[in-house]
């Protein structure tokens, strides 16, 4: 019993779509595996800024938190709280963060900085 269906133009279009989708998936996976980290500044639970890290980026960001002014420094692949108008200054003592999963927080001001993205020695969370 022969069961041959001749291919038509529509079939080729379908194949093209399938190949395009496959490429899309592959590119997406490849992108996900690239090492790229981001510094996130979250103010009161809302993302305030996301900065691409790893370059020669130098920036000092000042923003207004709940109890006063907060200054955050970006330096290449790392970031930190430089100063904060708050009672405890715990955030300043935390120091630099650079690995995925690390974070620092100024509780009184409700400002948090954290590293997201992918790097080899990153973690999913840090027990503090």
């Amino acid at each position: 019993m022969k069961n041959k269906i001749p291919l038509k133009l529509g079939d080729f279009a379908l194949f093209a779509v399938i190949i395009a989708l496959a490429c899309g998936v592959w590119i997406r996976l490849a992108l996900m595996q690239t090492e790229q980290t981001y510094g996130e500044i979250v103010v009161d639970g809302t993302l305030y800024r996301e900065i691409k890290l790893g370059g020669t980026e130098q920036e000092t960001i000042t923003l207004e938190g709940r109890t006063g002014e907060v200054t955050i420094e970006i330096d290449g692949d790392r970031m930190r709280f430089v100063s904060s108008q708050c009672p405890d200054h715990t955030c300043e003592r935390t120091g630099w963060i650079s690995r995925v999963g690390q974070s620092a927080v100024c509780l009184p001001n409700r400002v948090m900085i954290k590293i997201t993205g992918i790097n080899q020695d990153g973690v999913d969370a840090v027990a503090q």
Binding site: T94, G95, R99, A104, Q128
Partner: peptide, 12 residues
């Protein structure tokens, strides 16, 4: 899961 470095609280 990282465990915080007691000497450097931002790190593990």
């Amino acid at each position: 899961i990282g465990i915080t470095d007691p000497d450097s609280a931002g790190d593990y």
